[in-house]
Simulated assay, not measured.
Amino acid sequence: MARYAQSERQLLADLLIAVGPDAPTLCEGWTARDLAAHLVMRERRPDAAAGILIGPLRRHSERVRTSLATRPYPELVDMVRAAPWWSLVSNPLADAAANTMEFFIHHEDVRRGRPGWRPRELPREQQEALWRRAKGVARLALRRVRAAVRVQAPGYGETTAGSGGAQVRLVGAPGELAIFLSGRQRAARVQVDGTPEMAAFLRSAKLGV
């Protein structure tokens, strides 16, 4: 649902202002300022945003993000809060598909980057929207894992991923699974059932798409 992409965007912008530019996040080495610059680049600099996924463009992407991070922090947050209508990833047609999970995860990056956080109680409809996206992410994030991984969201459904072999289960709420599968395992409330070796591997592996 597009409204969850929009509501998480506003909650994230509010939190970025509340914690300040130097607050830690779950993104290794990034402060709140760095995360805001990343989001601005992703929406407003498609030439640089391609480097998020394409290795040879990564250096250009990092230069642009670093340059954006030098802007006044309130200005950066305002740019996060109000996406340009022409953005490839945030225009009205693309917003729900591209941003429902993106802004939820980055909101949690800031929330869970500090001690004392607790999981939020999300509306069922939002959990359903996250689950629809997490299923696709699971197949990508776990595609090279040498195990048959059952990803279960009780009350929402399950999917299978991995390349086959040992049986492993990941069990959690859709939002927690989304956080786990995006490579933030240490901050996700997800149960991992399997051999001790495989469970340890999944909790430390470099996941994400």
Rank of each mutant, 00 (worst) to 15 (best):
A141K: 11
T70R: 14
R143G: 09
R132V: 11
P24R: 10
Q6K: 13
L68W: 02
E102V: 07
A13H: 04
R144P: 06
L181S: 09
L122A: 04
L170I: 04
I179P: 00
R65Y: 09
A199S: 14
V77K: 06
G29F: 08
A147F: 01
L12Q: 00
P123E: 08
D22Q: 14
C27W: 00
E128H: 14
A188Y: 00
T25D: 05
S163R: 13
A98D: 07
T31G: 07
A98N: 11
A173F: 02
L177P: 04
A5E: 01
L142M: 05
T159E: 12
G165L: 04
W117C: 10
A18T: 05
L53I: 05
G55D: 09
L202Y: 08
D47N: 09
A37K: 09
P46A: 08
Y156F: 15
A178E: 07
P56W: 06
A32E: 02
T100G: 10
S7E: 15
V64D: 00
E28M: 09
R111T: 13
H106I: 01
M79N: 03
A98V: 11
V209G: 13
D78V: 03
Q191A: 15
R143Q: 09
G157M: 13
E121V: 15
L140Y: 15
P123W: 10
L16Q: 09
A166I: 15
A141S: 10
Y73G: 00
R114G: 12
A178P: 07
K135L: 14
A5C: 00
M41H: 05
E121W: 13
A23G: 12
R184S: 05
A148I: 06
G155Q: 06
V77T: 03
Q127C: 08
G194R: 02
L16I: 06
L11S: 12
D34L: 03
A37T: 02
D14H: 01
G208P: 04
T70L: 11
F180G: 08
E128Y: 13
L76C: 01
A83S: 14
E158I: 07
L12P: 02
R150A: 15
D34M: 01
R169A: 10
R42D: 05
R44T: 13
P174C: 05
M101N: 14
T25G: 03
E121T: 14
V168M: 06
R184V: 00
W86C: 08
A205C: 06
T195V: 00
N91M: 05
A188W: 00
G55I: 08
A161T: 05
F180D: 08
R184K: 04
F180K: 03
L53T: 12
E75S: 07
V80R: 02
S163H: 12
Y73H: 00
D47F: 15
A36K: 09
A97N: 12
R139C: 10
L122R: 03
H38A: 10
E43Y: 11
P74D: 02
Q10D: 08
A153C: 02
W30A: 07
R33I: 01
A23W: 08
E8T: 14
H106A: 01
D34C: 02
L39Q: 09
S67F: 10
Y156S: 14
A187V: 09
V151R: 12
L39G: 02
V77D: 00
P196S: 10
G113P: 07
T159R: 13
Q152G: 11
E197G: 04
M101Y: 13
T25R: 07
F104L: 02
Y156Q: 12
A161V: 01
A98F: 06
G194Q: 04
T25L: 08
A200P: 07
R143K: 15
E62G: 02
